[in-house]
Amino acid sequence: MSSIIEELQSTVKKLLEDGTVGYVIGWGATRFPDRTTPVFITRPEDAHKLVWNHYCVNGTAKYALDDRYPEKKIGIIIRGCDSRAVNRMIQDNQLKRENLYLIGIPCDGKENPVCEGCQHKNPLVYDVLIGTPVEEKINPDRFKEVAEFEKLSQDEKYEYWAKQYDKCIHCYACRNVCPACNCKECYADQYRVGWQGKQNNRNSNQVYGLTRAFHVGDRCIECGECERVCPMGLPIMRQTKKMLKDINDLFGDYECGLNDSRPHVLGEFDLQDRDEFM
């Protein structure tokens, strides 16, 4: 691990020194050894502040949206999931590839339950790769939890989600952290239209949950950030997984944020689309 950190830091230092990038987004230390925080390295002499360990859980890619017209390229240190986030946002016309310099780093999984099912540990796209690729495997249990949950009755499912959404505090952390949630203005913020009330109650909370799930349904890269950040511990990925499972069942193998240019299944219309539910 230490040689990877050295390689990472020296690569970043060089990129800043030769002016390839304006700054680099990565992970830095906090007060606690088991926690890191996103850092933005602008000076070569600060490259040593970058860390790479089991606790680098935060997604890095979405921060690039804070800077849509950068003077120099934005350097982003990306794991497999972050690379899918980059693809996601490029496919959504939110980022331009030529504005990014991608420092790929193969990831062996972090202190985050979602990593256990990860099928893309190596960055799918990068300009430079730190270290060597790690072994990847197909996760046969990708939809196991959802399949189990589907066995519950409608009432049981309603009861379950009602209790979960009763906890929701409308902090919108799940939305703000999500690389697929990249609308210029979120429907929930269109306060003059009033789609989404600010009041906290079962209705309002569930409307938000449902809308979020459908909006990201065919674009979710399965990074699990929504669930990791939820301060109330809602199992948010279970919803997006359900959307993805249905899409896989209806439209064949489907994963988002890969290097293909397949259109979003919910974003295109095809006369051959299945419509028996109509």
Binding site: F40, Y63, H170, Y172, A173, N176, V177, V229, P231
Partner: peptide, 12 residues
């Protein structure tokens, strides 16, 4: 810079 603009800090 690391802030994601959610309301977690204010609501807890």
């Amino acid at each position: 810079r690391a802030c994601i603009g959610c309301a977690t800090c204010t609501y807890v």
